[in-house]
Design a binder for these strands. Sequence first.
DNA 1: CCCTATTTTGACCTTCCTTGACCTTCATCT
DNA 2: AGATGAAGGTCAAGGAAGGTCAAAATAGGG
Lengths: 153, 153
Amino acid sequence: MPSLTEQIERWLKEQLLRAGGNTLEIRRSDLAEIFACVPSQVNYVLATRFTVERGYLVQSRRGGGGFIRIIKLRMDLPEQLQGLLSRGIGESISQAQAEGIVERLWEEELLNGREKRMLEAAVSRETLGVELPLRDVLRARLLKAMLLALLGE
Amino acid sequence: MPSLTEQIERWLKEQLLRAGGNTLEIRRSDLAEIFACVPSQVNYVLATRFTVERGYLVQSRRGGGGFIRIIKLRMDLPEQLQGLLSRGIGESISQAQAEGIVERLWEEELLNGREKRMLEAAVSRETLGVELPLRDVLRARLLKAMLLALLGE
DNA sequence: CCCTATTTTGACCTTCCTTGACCTTCATCT
DNA sequence: AGATGAAGGTCAAGGAAGGTCAAAATAGGG
């Protein structure tokens, strides 16, 4: 049985597709009611599954008439990948962030399944197996170098 | 009477066959309950019976909604690649050696151009950018993990 | 029977998810 | 403007998985 977080994640992505557009607006309290959970559960889902790395922008407004808006960022061109390489990936990156980027590129069909798995393997804490300040630095270098290798057809 | 370890091993392999696919996902705690044993017994079975040498890859996730995933590796590949993964690549490897392996796999068409470039980027001295005893160790881990990723599914 | 290798257990650790108390912002009504 | 209620935000504690390691138990071979 998928976790609540996963259920909410799927539901939101489905709504995004169904709406056809790239934007979804909903009340946090409504979502919480649909899934019979506390409202802050929604914030957890947004914070872990709809990050910028994964290609989403989340906006919101408090007070009466408040809402949460999820915007799916499109990455249609390799040019954007270049942007990712030059600006998006810094000197150091966490595993979660790196996986978000890989997940997004895969969803955008800029990577196939084999390439995705290779990147995930390379970026994994376990594979790197060194302690923390260095691990994140190494991961950033690898991710950049590997993605760059894909661009240079 | 077969040992607990053997019973669990058989059961898992049977489930893998039954599912038809090459992947099985299950909760460690469920498995422990089925066989009325401590959860860590499952780890022992995985560590001794579902190793890379025996043709399996094990992945997992902790926390709520956690799971253990067993992937049966493709066995239709030349012995070379499998041999490489279980014995050929040691704890440490030079750039020249690593590049030789990648080149060979590419010539045998086990890797395409994109995959070759990703691997070369990952094993490059410049990308790794750490000093020597560690660099070769890291390279060996990356090469193994990335090639292994190609054998899943 | 003894010695060794393998298996079984359990205490303790890390990661990820869920919940709830408390805080901030906004629209609207006096 | 000030008060009020209706949103959403934050954060820390608790819970729910799986991981690790070493000691204890057992099985097998000589």
